[in-house]
């Protein structure tokens, strides 16, 4: 009956919910067990878990009762975070434990998930005091490296190039740092997709018959294999840049610059102060910074030569 009513309303999201509402879905990402009322096909499903995080639907207020700080689309307080995007919905993230979604009628499920698995998961990770670096993580099975840098610099493209060369991708866009049994830093398995623009897929001669991140533009989700083995220790973080130079280049980052660059490349850094998580973040960075090597790596803006850059970077990453 519900399904019938919803179809009359032509309400895409309600239709979707009516089809799925009675189910609960279980996933694991960033080392966290997630129980969700919303199906999240981007994540790896698991069974029989005790959940760390619950994602569900409910009423989300227009504003938080006590706001510590805000941005254009978000409000933050201690253990409370609100994200709102007109046309998609409102999200409330609390205590690093639950995310409540109030979608708007016209919202597409893929768009709801895009914000959920981006900024909202970012806020949840910060509430839990976890360190999340903005970048993709790759491994050769013996060591792990994070490729970081500002948006548009080519982190995912380089990860796609290294994947072509036979290396494995652990995470794209958000690399969450954890500890293994030997107390070594590792990167937790992320969402098993690379988000790639059409020009990159075409450049790498790859199929563009993939799911779009949003229907409005040519950015696709390319599935990547999920690592079965425990990820190897994190040994390097590379800060990428692009310039109008003609050659690839790299240099090691030393001293205080390591800390500052790591801080500046934290995923959704702007949430941290406003959530009162600055001390935990400082502590996490201080512990990590002494355990890893960091490098600057620069590529030419043009021409785009992803595989050549990937070969160049593989020498730095895995053979130095």
């Amino acid at each position: 009956m519900f399904r019938h009513l919803c179809l009359i309303k032509h309400d895409r999201f309600v239709v979707y919910l009516c089809q799925k509402r009675l189910n609960k879905y279980y996933y694991k990402v960033y080392g966290l067990n997630i129980c969700s009322e919303l199906e999240l096909p981007e994540l790896s499903p698991v069974q029989n878990i005790k959940e760390d995080v619950i994602i569900g639907f409910g009423k989300v207020p227009e504003h938080l009762p006590k706001v510590r700080g805000s941005g254009v689309l978000f409000e933050a307080a201690l253990n409370d975070f609100l994200f709102k995007f007109e046309g998609i919905g409102r999200y409330r993230v609390q205590y690093g434990r639950r995310i409540i979604i109030q979608p708007e009628r016209e919202a597409l499920p893929a768009e709801i998930r895009l914000i959920l698995l981006g900024s909202c998961i970012g806020a949840l990770l910060h509430q839990r005091g976890m360190l999340a670096i903005h970048g993709s993580a790759i491994t050769d099975g013996k060591q792990t490296t994070i490729l970081s840098g500002q948006s548009g610099v080519g982190k995912s493209s380089l990860a796609a190039g290294l994947l072509e060369l036979g290396y494995s991708v652990i995470a794209d866009d958000i690399s969450v740092i954890g500890l293994n049994g030997k107390q070594h830093f590792i990167v937790e398995n992320g969402i098993p997709h690379l988000k790639l623009w059409k020009d990159v897929l075409v450049h790498l001669n790859q199929d563009v018959d993939l799911t779009k991140v949003r229907p409005q533009f040519e950015k696709y989700r390319k599935p990547i294999p999920v690592l079965e083995d425990p990820p190897p220790s994190l040994s390097k973080i590379i800060i990428l840049s692009a310039s109008n130079s003609t050659d690839f280049s790299y240099s090691e980052i030393l001293g205080r610059d390591k800390f500052h660059l790591l801080r500046n490349n934290t995923y959704r850094l702007q949430f941290i102060d406003k959530m009162n998580q600055t001390e935990a973040h400082f502590r996490n960075l201080s512990q990590l910074v002494n355990s890893i090597q960091m490098f600057h790596a620069n590529r030419p803006h043009y021409p785009q030569n992803i595989l050549e850059f990937a070969k160049y970077m593989s020498e730095i990453i895995f053979k130095t």
Partner: peptide, 10 residues
């Protein structure tokens, strides 16, 4: 991106 709290690329 910083003031929005999300990737403008999306």
């Amino acid at each position: 991106d910083s003031y929005l709290g999300m990737h403008s690329s999306e």
